[in-house]
Amino acid sequence: MNRFHVHLNVTDLDASLRFYTALFAAPPSVLKPDYAKWLLDDPRVNFAISHTGQAAGREPGIAHLGIQAGDADALADLGRRLDAAGGSVLPEQAATCCYARSDKFWTEDPQGTRWETFHTFGDATTYHAGGDASCATGGTDCAPQAPVAGHAVAAPAKAAGCCTPASGCC
C-alpha cells in the first residue's frame, strides 16, 4: 500500500520534534541530529522534517510532497502516472537520501511544487550519498532542482553521485 509523503524544512528541530511528537501521539520512527521521520498509519503518511535546509538558505516550509510506494511495481506504476501527467520526470536508482536507500521518480506540478515518488529498500548511515559535506551546502532535501525534460519513464536510472543534477540529491 502506498503512503502520502510530506517533507518540511524547519528552523528549530527540537521544537518541531516536540510539536509533531505531541500532534501524532508517537515518537519519530527515525531520529537523527538533523532529521526526523514519522511513519504513521492514522493518517497513513510518511512525515519528515529536517534542519538541513537553512545551510543552503532554504526557507522553512514544504520542501517537497510525494508518495511512498509499497513495492517496486507500485513505484513503476507511479512513474507511468507521472509521465502521463505530462510533466518532466527525473528517475534515479539506489539513491541515498534522508538516511535511506530508495529508487525514485521526481517531477514538479504546474505550480513548481516538487513531487517525489519512491520505494525505500534499505537504511543509510548518512543524510546524503557518501555523506559529502558539500551536499549540505549545495542542496538540502535530496530533491532535484529541476526534472529532466522529455525523459522516458521505464525504470529509475542509476544515480550519478552526490550533488550532481543526475543524482537528485541537490
Results as ranks from 00 to 15, higher is better:
50 S>C: 11
44 R>C: 09
57 G>N: 13
61 G>V: 08
51 H>Q: 14
54 Q>H: 14
38 W>G: 06
67 I>Y: 00
38 W>N: 02
53 G>K: 04
66 G>I: 03
59 E>D: 07
39 L>M: 13
38 W>I: 09
43 P>S: 12
47 F>S: 03
42 D>I: 07
34 D>G: 05
33 P>C: 14
43 P>Q: 08
35 Y>N: 11
43 P>N: 10
35 Y>P: 01
47 F>A: 01
65 L>D: 06
66 G>F: 00
66 G>D: 04
57 G>M: 10
50 S>T: 15
66 G>H: 01
56 A>T: 15
47 F>C: 01
53 G>C: 06
57 G>F: 10
40 L>N: 10
49 I>W: 05
36 A>H: 01
34 D>A: 08
62 I>P: 00
39 L>N: 02
34 D>K: 02
67 I>A: 04
41 D>A: 15
47 F>L: 07
66 G>A: 12
61 G>N: 08
62 I>K: 07
67 I>V: 15
57 G>T: 14
39 L>Y: 08
65 L>A: 11
63 A>G: 13
33 P>F: 14
58 R>D: 09
56 A>Y: 05
55 A>I: 07
35 Y>C: 08
54 Q>T: 15
49 I>Q: 04
50 S>K: 05
65 L>W: 10
68 Q>M: 13
41 D>F: 07
37 K>T: 11
33 P>Q: 15
56 A>V: 14
34 D>M: 07
45 V>T: 10
68 Q>P: 00
50 S>V: 02
46 N>C: 13
62 I>M: 09
61 G>R: 09
58 R>M: 15
46 N>L: 09
49 I>K: 06
44 R>Y: 03
66 G>Q: 05
36 A>F: 06
50 S>Y: 01
48 A>D: 04
68 Q>S: 13
55 A>W: 02
57 G>P: 00
48 A>V: 05
52 T>E: 05
63 A>M: 09
55 A>K: 14
42 D>G: 03
